[in-house]
C-alpha cells in the first residue's frame, strides 16, 4: 500500500517523473482558478451578486473576518496567503470523497512545502511590517538569552504544521483503506464523512496557525516601560 502519492509517477518530462502529488495539486489549482474566474467574470458593482458570487463573497469575507480577529494589523496580503492556504487544503481534503482522488495534502512533501512557505512568510511579513532591525530584535525578546529558544521555536512551528497536517490527512486515508479491506460496505462511508470533517478542520487549523504566526511577527510590541523617561 502506498502511503504517499509522491511514490506514484503519473508521467515523465525530460527525465523527471511528475508524481501524483503534483498532478493532483494542479487539478486543485485548476479547479479553484476556473471556478473563481468563472464566477467573477463580468463583475459589475451596479449588478446585484448572484448565488455563486454570494458564496464566494461570503467565503472571502469569512476568511477576512477570521484574520481581522487574529491580526492586530490586517493586511490584504495576509488574506491572499492564509486564504489560499485554507482553500487549497480544504479543496484537497474535501475531494478525497471522489473515488481515485489522491489528496496532495496526504504527501509529506506538500505539507513540508506549505510549512516552509509559512516559515518564509513569517519573516517576510515581519520585516515588511516592522523593518529588518525590528524583526531581528524580536528574536532577542525579552532577553538575548532567549535567542536560541526563539529560533528553535520558529523551526518547530513549521515542523509541527507539516507533521500535523500530513499525519491527519495521511492517517485518515490509511485508516479508510484498512477499513475498506475489513468491512468494505459501511466503515469506509463513515470514515469518508469523518474525513470531510477532519479535512475541513485541518484546513482551518493550518490557515489559522499560519495567520497567528505571521500576525505575531507583524505585531508591534508595546513600548518598554523601563526605557520611558520619568
Amino acid at each position: 500500500m502506498e502511503l504517499t502519492p509522491d511514490d506514484t509517477i503519473v508521467f515523465t518530462v525530460l527525465g523527471f517523473g511528475v508524481n501524483a502529488t503534483i498532478v493532483f495539486t494542479w487539478v486543485v489549482m485548476a479547479l479553484l482558478t476556473a471556478a473563481a474566474a468563472f464566477i467573477t467574470r463580468n463583475l459589475r458593482a451596479d449588478v446585484p451578486p448572484d448565488r455563486w458570487r454570494t458564496v464566494l463573497e461570503a467565503t472571502v469575507l469569512t476568511i477576512q473576518s477570521q484574520i481581522d480577529e487574529i491580526s492586530a494589523r490586517p493586511d490584504r496580503r495576509l488574506l491572499y496567503f492564509a486564504g489560499t492556504l485554507f482553500l487549497f487544503i480544504l479543496t484537497s481534503n474535501v475531494l478525497a470523497i471522489v473515488p481515485g482522488w489522491r489528496a496532495p495534502t496526504a504527501s509529506l512533501s506538500t505539507t513540508v512545502g506549505l510549512a516552509l512557505a509559512v516559515l518564509a512568510a513569517v519573516p517576510l511579513f515581519g520585516i515588511g511590517s516592522r523593518g529588518l532591525g525590528g524583526y531581528l530584535r524580536s528574536y532577542a525578546e525579552p532577553n538575548i538569552i532567549m535567542l536560541p529558544f526563539n529560533l528553535i521555536g520558529e523551526v518547530s512551528r513549521g515542523v509541527s504544521l507539516a507533521i500535523r497536517l500530513y499525519g491527519n490527512v495521511m492517517s485518515g486515508a490509511v485508516i479508510a483503506a484498512i477499513l475498506l479491506g475489513v468491512a468494505p460496505f459501511f466503515f469506509p462511508v463513515v470514515m469518508d464523512m469523518l474525513g470531510l470533517l477532519t479535512g475541513a478542520i485541518q484546513a482551518y487549523i493550518f490557515a489559522i496557525l499560519a495567520t497567528v504566526y505571521i500576525s505575531s511577527a507583524t505585531a508591534v510590541p508595546p513600548p518598554d516601560a523601563s526605557k520611558e523617561t520619568p
Binding site: 509522491d6 508524481n19 502529488t21 503534483i22 495539486t25 494542479w26 486543485v28 489549482m29 479553484l32 482558478t33 473563481a36 474566474a37 467573477t40 464566494l56 472571502v60 491572499y80 496567503f81 486564504g83 489560499t84 492556504l85 482553500l87 487549497f88 496532495p104 504527501s107 512533501s109 506538500t110 513540508v112 512545502g113 506549505l114 516552509l116 512557505a117
Partner: peptide, 20 residues
C-alpha cells in the same frame, strides 16, 4: 516535490489573487 509544491502554492496565491 517540496520545491514544486512551494512553487505551485505561490502560483496558486497569484492566481487566486488575480481571479478571486
Amino acid at each position: 516535490t517540496v520545491a514544486a509544491q512551494i512553487v505551485n502554492f505561490l502560483v496558486l496565491v497569484w492566481l487566486l489573487k488575480r481571479f478571486l
